[in-house]
Design a protein around this nucleic acid. Structure first.
Lengths: 309, 309
DNA sequence: CCTGGCGCCGAAAATACCTTTCAGTAGTGA
DNA sequence: TCACTACTGAAAGGTATTTTCGGCGCCAGG
């Protein structure tokens, strides 16, 4: 018709608005824009994240224009209104942020802000898990699981940080009804290792593969006929000489602030978890009720008052 | 402040809301939600892209609830209102589309071959790390680090699996010259907590946030004026009542074979590592030589023979 | 130089959407 | 059974967005 009843601009596209091609679209359409609209478009393309945080009024103010102009620009860019442009802006900002994320693989520095520390640490440990999973010999793992599941008795050796990993494994094995002991004291470990024989399992955890305090008891167990397993980052290390089965953990590069113990622990725990689940699968008939029972028993520790929940 | 003039819910975090940790946060907070809110949270976590396209009214209708409930849920998730949740949703959808999708891994089954167990476990733990990192409140973390670095004495409480995490932290802190103790015995923990006062730090680790054995000593320390920190998966749990600072760990879904303890441990260890590195940064002058010294001391344990190497 | 036409622009009205209040209802413990 | 608490949605109350509408400046022609 002749009169314009509504300022509905010839929306250049009937298609649903673009996701990330926004900057390009701004460039394409800029020549056909009026001065004020260009200012808005420029602001939007230049700082999507910042603009996404603004209301219509805010953006108008920031660009020295009016709300109406902001809405008009949104329309021209292919969105029904500012509300939708804003959503697209938030999405764009997120994509940009995600693209930049992998850049933080750098080492953790002394002056890193705490937020970077969190990100870097999480990424390094994730990498460490992936490496370990990729490098784990499933045949050896399978054999270790079989030995554990059938064992009369299980002794675990670890000192320092590895001691905690050993305790973790033992805690879990006990929960599904196996007989397991963790030894942190090398003397007692050796003393007990003498008791082991065929059908028992001895498991040593050492990142360096050279920890004498852990190798000794494993050697004794080995010589007494027990099945010996080593979880180590050095499959060629001394500990491997006395191990029937070797499970290799990954060795992440360590830095000044991040001692090797940190990544080796992550790696070791993954192996330990795999062992546990493997054993639980194989002894499922017995393990399932045992797990349920121990869970139930703990539930009452939360709240001293008796009764359900 | 007797009457509640406004329905302002105790927003669990004062920090700006999370970007991509939304699914994790939903899981974390779901237990503390009412039925209607759970429906909303579920819809939001299940279809971020779809929900981002809806208005409050639309989402309320889709979930069979009211606008008020939608807003309440948004608040609980840490956003000022629905508008902001919607923006975050759009951002999340964009990230997922960009390939960063959390990739829902299937549950570990009883008859999974061991190779699958390794893969799935590694993936779940990686996801757990990512969730935790994304959900960590850096302001609280920063404050906790500052408190630890300046502490006269540090007591750590944890029982069961969390006990090992506590020991891990203490081992590390000791290595850089801080005075720290891990308590697994609740009675001794309380006895010692009485000794704490302003300038000391008490740190409790409990996934459920309801472990009485851990809450008690923390409460005592809190009442004696110590700075109290909680590492928990339930920031709304009882333990938070006595914690000056709360560090939230992520809650992965647990299955029959994979008890909650497993993923909570991964999560807790990441937090603990972050604390440690933060403290090491702040006390670098003292920490660096201490780390080097303890490393040196250990080197001689590998090989009993004296001399270099 | 003046005048009319044209299109850009923003103030303010109109609308849509979001937030808050409030009262009804169901569930819970005494 | 009754009192009490907590959850919930309808509707009132506010903001943010969209639309309308008139002013203003630029330009061409008189």
């Amino acid at each position: 018709m002749s009169s314009k009843l509504k300022e509905t601009f010839n929306t250049p596209e009937a298609t649903p608005p673009a996701p990330a091609a926004l900057a390009a679209k701004v460039r394409t359409l800029a020549p056909s824009m009026t001065r004020s609209m260009q200012r808005v478009a420029e602001a939007v393309a230049g700082d999507p994240a910042g603009c996404a945080a603004l209301t219509v009024t805010g953006l108008a103010e920031r660009t020295g224009t009016s709300e109406a102009t902001v809405v008009r620009t949104s329309r021209l860019l292919g969105y029904p209104g500012y509300r939708d442009l804003r959503l697209a802006l938030a999405a764009l900002a997120a994509q940009q942020a995600a693209g930049r994320a992998p850049a933080v693989t750098a080492d953790i520095a002394v002056d890193d802000p705490i937020a970077d520390v969190v990100t870097k640490l999480a990424q390094e440990e994730q990498q460490c898990l992936a490496d370990t999973a990729a490098g784990l010999d499933t045949a050896q793992l399978e054999a270790a699981v079989a030995a554990l599941a059938a064992a009369r008795r299980i002794d675990v050796y670890g000192v320092g940080a590895s001691s905690l990993v050993g305790q973790d494994l033992v805690q879990k094995l006990l929960r599904i009804g196996l007989i397991a002991h963790a030894h942190a004291d090398p003397h007692l470990a050796v003393t007990n290792a003498v008791q082991l024989h065929s059908g028992d399992v001895a498991l040593a955890i050492t990142h360096s593969g050279r920890t004498t305090d852990v190798i000794e008891p494993l050697r004794v167990a080995f010589e007494h006929g027990a099945t010996t397993v080593a979880i180590t980052g050095r499959p060629d290390g001394e500990v491997a000489q006395y191990a029937d089965l070797v499970l290799t953990t990954s060795t992440a590069r360590e830095s000044e602030l991040r001692p090797a113990a940190m990544s080796s622990r992550t790696s070791q725990l993954l192996v330990v978890d795999c062992l546990f689940i493997g054993v639980a699968q194989r002894t499922y008939e017995a393990a399932a009720p045992a797990l349920a029972a121990s869970y139930e028993a703990l539930a009452h520790r939360h709240d001293p008052r008796p009764g359900p929940r």
